[in-house]
Design a protein around this nucleic acid. Sequence first.
DNA 1: GCGCGGCTCTATAACGTTATACAGGCGATG
DNA 2: CATCGCCTGTATAACGTTATAGAGCCGCGC
Lengths: 338, 338
Amino acid sequence: MVVSLKDIAQRAGVSLATVSNVVNGYRPVGERTRQRVQQAIDELGYSPNLGARHLRRGRTGLIALAVPELTNPYFAELAEIAISEAAGLGYTLLMENTAADRDAELALLDGSRQRVIDGLILSPVRIGREEVLARTADSPLVLIGEGVYDVPHDHIAIDNVAASHAAIRHLVSIGRRRIAFIGATQGGDRQSAHLRVQGYREALAAAGLPYRPRLVARTDAFGRLDGKRAMRDLLALGDRPDAVFGYNDLVAIGALRALAEAGHRVPEDVAVVGIDDIEEGRFSAPTLTTIAPDKREIGRLAVRRLVARIEGAEVAGSLTVQTPFQLIRRESTGARGG
Amino acid sequence: MVVSLKDIAQRAGVSLATVSNVVNGYRPVGERTRQRVQQAIDELGYSPNLGARHLRRGRTGLIALAVPELTNPYFAELAEIAISEAAGLGYTLLMENTAADRDAELALLDGSRQRVIDGLILSPVRIGREEVLARTADSPLVLIGEGVYDVPHDHIAIDNVAASHAAIRHLVSIGRRRIAFIGATQGGDRQSAHLRVQGYREALAAAGLPYRPRLVARTDAFGRLDGKRAMRDLLALGDRPDAVFGYNDLVAIGALRALAEAGHRVPEDVAVVGIDDIEEGRFSAPTLTTIAPDKREIGRLAVRRLVARIEGAEVAGSLTVQTPFQLIRRESTGARGG
DNA sequence: GCGCGGCTCTATAACGTTATACAGGCGATG
DNA sequence: CATCGCCTGTATAACGTTATAGAGCCGCGC
């Protein structure tokens, strides 16, 4: 049997309202009564009906984290952090998979899901500034990753241009001159790819190296297979690069695979760098040099800002936070050991 | 502004009940009225308040999938499938992370979370038959993976013993004689490890090979690092195995890494087989031979059975389904190409 | 001695739905 | 022509909770 406030009230011989006050302390209750009520709660094993509470309060205690792919370890690792942070704040985090689909992102942005969640953390891929501005829903929204700037929402990301700089500087520092980039995109979507390409170009220029469009490979998506295909295409071109910078670790790992299959040595023939620092890169052969964003910071910050907004803290304007990152050298650029 | 049934009713000049009937078709509505109501809905952009609906119907439309680790690609891949299957049936799937923690599993089993979800799909790791039997909550429960048998709940898994057989037979067929197992456990928890070890022993016996306890390595968890450490320990033992069967792909990938660091060639010196067929194993160097469970089938079946129970289909008794699996040969046991 | 404020507690009206009971109209049936 | 049943639609009571208004009681100050 499922116990409600009424059962407790009956058992303890008090009114509904008093039990409610004992449970959530909205108004003070006398010590004797409180004990009687508490005892009844313990005996009957009451736990509040969240649906009813939601109906009354207008909040569900649910927030969502929407990512383009659950199977990308970067997002899985981020999700684990966010889930535990949300739990600590009394919220339940719901994972949404947009599958990098524009309609899915739009639906989430102001769709019906909003009726059940108190707020949304979104990693946009296919939508841009206009779509976000056109949003009608009024529940709080926090953006993570890149793609959308200058909108009235909190935004947490790393500085992609700077991250690219760091990667390219590292490759230049170990003597590479023909540096390719894998993971550019066609359209204006996925801005982070643009930013990473931009950082790549700037850093090349800063190092006095020429920008060769042929060395920038486009991909449809950003998985291992995309990286592998792009690397294969680059190799087929004839003028082999001596280094590759991948849009993310998955793309870089795909590139590693293509290089191995083509019989090229990493890092001797071609050095490889990714972004994300997923665990897989610490176990690949060779291990993968990467730009490590502070996932813990990103996950915690995103949840905390969202919850702050939900709970009404009129935090000053929208806030864009750039979290730190770090270059981690591993075998794919010549570091020794694991 | 947030529109409710009342607003629609007013606009269309009908009663609340009629609008409700248009929305969810509980009772038929005349064609003319239906059109007027539908128009009002479209114009005002109504979407039902799920909290209220939950309160009234006693169902939330939320189901949960609880896994021991989100960052295990096997579960991430399974989750993607389950999420889309659930969406197709009109349910939202909530991911829960038990972090392989006993208390977390227990809390989920009959804890307060039950008040917000209609049913639970659980991949148990630390709890067994007794705990499941002692459960008080009465919402439907579907178990996936191994660990708990003979309980009155639906259960979907592969035949672990048979899977182990297939793996060992394969290793024997390519001439291996000293076959190690990585991923045994200490206690009675994580039954699947027991079953996989059991299959390993049986298959050794069937092949006329001796069972050497020293070649069975225990691990605390089942990640890459655990596999790497265990492999390192096995190598330190002196009598090097000529093949390794890992509890799962992650463990096997960790083993690959340890072998590479120790300078052993795979598969020439040591062949390696895992279980799960995660994408990572198709890109590792060497690519990983694995036992591939039918993740699509498992995910879809789990969701469908759970929903069937929720919706009251008194399906005959509890059902244990064993889904098919398949051996996929790759480089780590001598197959050529990707 | 009376009024007034503070302290507990209670009664009750929402929140937005859905299911039940009921009412009116109209054609078919006896 | 009266009656029955079907078909549409309505009014309304829940579901379990929380917030608001208010009731009873006690002690204190004038």
